[in-house]
Write a protein that binds this DNA or RNA. Sequence first.
DNA 1: TGCTCCACGC
DNA 2: GACGTACGTGGAGCAG
Length: 873
Amino acid sequence: MKKLILIDGNSIAYRAFFALPLLNNEKGVYTNAVYGFTTMLLKIIEEEKPTHMLVAFDAGKTTFRHKTYDDYKGGRQKTPPELSEQFPLVRELLDAFNISRYEAENYEADDIIGTLAKNASEEDFEVKVYSGDKDLLQLVSDKVTVILTKKGITNVEAYDEALIADKYGLSPKQIIDMKGLMGDSSDNIPGVPGVGEKTALKLLKEFGTVEKVLDSIDQISGKKMKEKLEENREQALMSKELATIFLEVPFETELEDLSFGDYDQKKVVDFMKELEFTSLVSKFDVDAEEVELEEITYETLEKIEEDHLTKEAALIVEVLGENYHQVPIEGFAMVNEKGRFFITTEKALDSEAFVNWLKDDSTQISVFDAKQAVVSLGWQGILLNGVEFDMQLASYLLDSSLSSHGISDVASRKGISQLQDDEVVYGKGAKRKIPDQDQLAEHLVRKAEALFKLKPVLEAELKENEQEELFRELEMPLSIVLGRMETTGVQVDKEQLEQMGEDLELRLDNLEKKIHEIAGTSFNINSPKQLGEILFEKLGLPSIKKTKTGYSTSADVLEKLAADHEIVEHILHYRQLGKLNSTYIEGLLKVTRKETNKIHTRYNQALTQTGRLSSTDPNLQNIPIRLEEGRRIRKAFIPSEKGWKMLAADYSQIELRVLAHIAEDEKLMEAFQLGMDVHTKTAMDVFHVAEEEVTSNMRRSAKAVNFGIVYGISDFGLSQSLGITRKEAGQFIERYFASYPKVKEYMDSIIEEAREKGYVSTLLHRRRYLPDLTSRNFNKRSFAERTAMNTPIQGTAADIIKKAMIEMAERIEQEQMQSRMLLQVHDELIFEVPEEEVEKMMKLVPEVMEKAVELNVPLKADVSYGETWYDAK
DNA sequence: TGCTCCACGC
DNA sequence: GACGTACGTGGAGCAG
């Protein structure tokens, strides 16, 4: 069957423009609307597989409707120039796709779409109309579906007759009557004053059309309403006329001319590349995006001579895949003033000269991902010592918001196109493999070449940003420290985990039986869909919250239902134990190395927007602690040497101390100078009570506000965590600010400063750019504002612990201790320590942590040790 | 394989 | 006046 897609070009472009941040490409051309339009188009082509397609645009300023009503669309805000300049690009995009576009003097896009929809349905086409404008709903019929954007651009809702009946209780045609009565402020259609959606729907359900409503005024209840309708009789009829889509726009083209099919992929890809839509380009066939690589010369070294090895060089130590622990090195590439070289792993590791060069600490080696290089070589027993520049870290520090810090991404952003993505060369997923040696060699050499060329560029940018020190003294040395921690790994007591797993499975079985019994049927408790059906349909519990796909069964919803039905508490318990078993017991066992019973996580040092680390494979930064049941998992984390202890030290309230420092708020500083419990102190200040009058509830509330300040949550977030209304939460925040005026001042000034500079900074010059601070979208702007307030706090805390880690590593080495740093959990460091060093470390670790930086409030670190991580509390 | 939902940590 | 609301990672279910 033929399928015609009609797109309301102006509407979708507007929508995209306001839904997306104001992107621009390197040439400064704004591209957000085109980008949104493109994603929408790609989605339509993929999902609808249209046979025919047309995009309609509004033509000039005046249309036939202005003859009826001068002020039609009056008072409308002028199209922002940033958007206007994108319309020619949208047209160019459509031409690249070979999609028809149409605009007609005197008519709006609606009329073009309406006419074509009518004509096409008469010829038995299936018609789908895409727009953001509800007006178009009047076109819906058994042949015509109207798809409206709901949120963002690609989140849409398809309206057929049934849905309109369901939502409004009206037929599609009656949508026009509704507009006639209630008007439309965006088009400046007046309607009948005092009649809104509710009244309009009521009247139309009773009488059917505007005309019939006006004919039956005497039957309408309410004196005021009668008067209004009487007075605005003409205006209502005119409004209806204005809202009616004209279905007789003259066309010169035939429907067949709108056919959509083959288009030149290269044209489309070129266009997208021009606008730097890299993520979209990757959706097209690899062939289409293959860049034309120029030839590159290099030498495959059979024998490595001293002469090849210079002080300064770019080095690639290649491994396949993300996880670089205990996997083979696939090859080396090196670029220096002497030339470009590829070296097979075998030749490289057999060469004494090369290995010595790697171990030499007086070299200046550039790499991409220093930690990977150090760890990969570390597993071969080689200590890579001379790493001086990590391009990935440099790119991350320069702009952490860039989503990809892969070598080819960084290179292409810096103007080097002579590098293919690893995925292109190796394939992805199950199909990933190393190509033949020539291809591999060339790829690695190109990587090293990019490194060699770009190092000075990125170094200059770091200097420009005053981030040289952050880079050289903090992130670079930290990558080596982290590499060592990862390689060391943490030992787990496998039997303990297995025992806990068996225990959990038994209890899960029993719980499952019980839940099925109560429900009276067997179902998958882990499936939110099935669980929702049981709870809210079969058992008839009240549905509190919905998700996109159905009922929400999240813990906060279930907790509210616990009193209504005994099954709920069992489900919550089942969930809790299930999570422990699958994520922690099974998950950890899966990644425990068989030979050593050790776990080697990987820290991502170039990911978070705030400067924190993240941990994967496994994530050791979210091991349970809050509930005792889960906390016991920590009993399985043990020292790797007999007689050693686990030692843990964590910063106490580091973020709030940082806040006190930055804001220089006397009252907040006082809390820390006096060594008070900060939540109690906050409760005292906010509720104006003495210490002994602080109730546990007050402290709980104060704690939640402090939490909110640290994490930058909104009044909504606070209301959720305290179970109060948003308004109350808002008032609470107000009171907090009233109590800590300097904090308020800081919050205001940081937003102001960030708006001027475009970014916020931490104590050690880490940056986060916040372009959304000037967004017209309230949501985005508010989010950016909270981010501006929160990032310097959280980021400075991250800076501090990173500094402490480097110093701890140095101290352990200097004092020739055997203790090993194992893990970092944002504000906490975990070590394994021989018995004889426990006493020293119990003093040294908190001392180093507390002295990592000097603030105008003291830093405090608590430390303890025990047989397992669990016991170090 | 990619998405959604849910849950864990800070 | 509504919007959809800290940052991460990972497992299970489910659709294609």
